[in-house]
């Protein structure tokens, strides 16, 4: 043990090599940036692989995808979708039921790139502390957006939603959306660690509801190998999800069943003991 505190994951890099200690992070960035590029080659090169944005998109004139949270807001505001949007919402729901609800947050959502950067900078600058807010705040905001949609008869949240504002803005013109994104960035950097994605965002809160039932999970087949280095806690954007499964609190099986795990896989990367790996929710007793 060296006296100088190491950056989380240093042990894993030493043990497994840099590439293996960053495997899921790299794949995740490829996914996030790749999805943005798929949307961008349309307006940039008039190569229309996919049209639309995360709210609703149409790929290769064949595959409709629609955001279930947005359609829910539309329904409570008293309007109904057409056939393609209905098909799209079913596909999206099934997809995230398979890969994990908040997988949307860490593999698809463009705001994650911004908040991850804020968090990285926060770590490098050694910024500590900040405001405290319950992680359940996002569910209150989720409820509020639905009530507001029902009362006002319009999709109120879409007027300020940084997620769709950024994604739409990148392909249709950003306008002042950059200022909104800057506020999210600065909030995460200076005011609250994992503030936006981990405490406030109702989009993530909605996808976490899908995550209650989703199949793909982080499993801990070798949790007894844990040497309490705390690296996984340091990198996890939803730290509260790890402890029960890692420590077997109250007989919790070695699989992270918490709905707010974003399946980012960073814990798998930084663990030098290979405690974590991706798997399914089924066959808990088998491990």
């Amino acid at each position: 043990m060296s006296a100088v505190p190491q950056r989380p994951g240093a042990e894993a890099v030493a043990e497994k090599g840099w590439l293996r200690a960053h495997k899921w992070l790299i794949l995740r960035r490829i996914s996030q940036i790749g999805i943005l590029l798929l949307f961008l080659v349309g307006p940039w090169f008039k190569l229309w692989i996919v049209k639309g944005n995360l709210n609703y998109s149409y790929t290769l004139d064949f595959l409709p995808l629609a955001d279930p949270y947005l359609l829910l807001q539309m329904l409570v505001a008293g309007q109904s979708p057409e056939r393609l949007a209905l098909i799209g919402v079913v596909i999206v729901l099934l997809f995230y039921l398979l890969v994990g609800g908040r997988t949307y947050c860490s593999w698809v959502c463009p705001v994650n790139l911004v908040t991850d950067l804020a968090n990285w900078l926060r770590m490098r600058l050694g910024l500590k502390g900040g405001a405290h807010l319950s992680r359940s705040t996002r569910y209150w905001i989720l409820g509020m957006t639905l009530v507001a949609a029902a009362v006002s008869g319009t999709i109120v949240w879409e007027m300020v939603n940084p997620v769709s504002m950024l994604h739409r803005g990148l392909f249709f013109g950003l306008g002042m959306a950059w200022a909104v994104i800057l506020v999210v960035f600065l909030f995460d950097l200076f005011v609250m660690r994992h503030g936006w994605c981990g405490h406030l965002c109702p989009v993530g809160a909605f996808y976490s509801l899908i995550g209650k039932l989703s199949v793909t999970r982080v499993r801990l087949p070798q949790r007894e190998a844990c040497n309490d280095c705390m690296d996984c806690f340091a990198v996890c954007p939803e730290q509260q999800v790890i402890r029960p499964a890692l420590k077997g609190i109250g007989g919790t099986p070695p699989v992270i069943m918490e709905e707010n795990c974003t399946n980012c896989g960073r814990c798998i990367d930084v663990c030098s003991k290979d405690v974590f790996k991706f798997g399914s929710r089924f066959g808990i007793s088998g491990n």
């Binding site: 639309g52 505001a77 008869g153 879409e158």
Partner: peptide, 10 residues
């Protein structure tokens, strides 16, 4: 319209 439009830009 503001309730039915999902701002997809299609």
């Amino acid at each position: 319209f503001s309730a039915a439009c999902i701002r997809c830009g299609m």
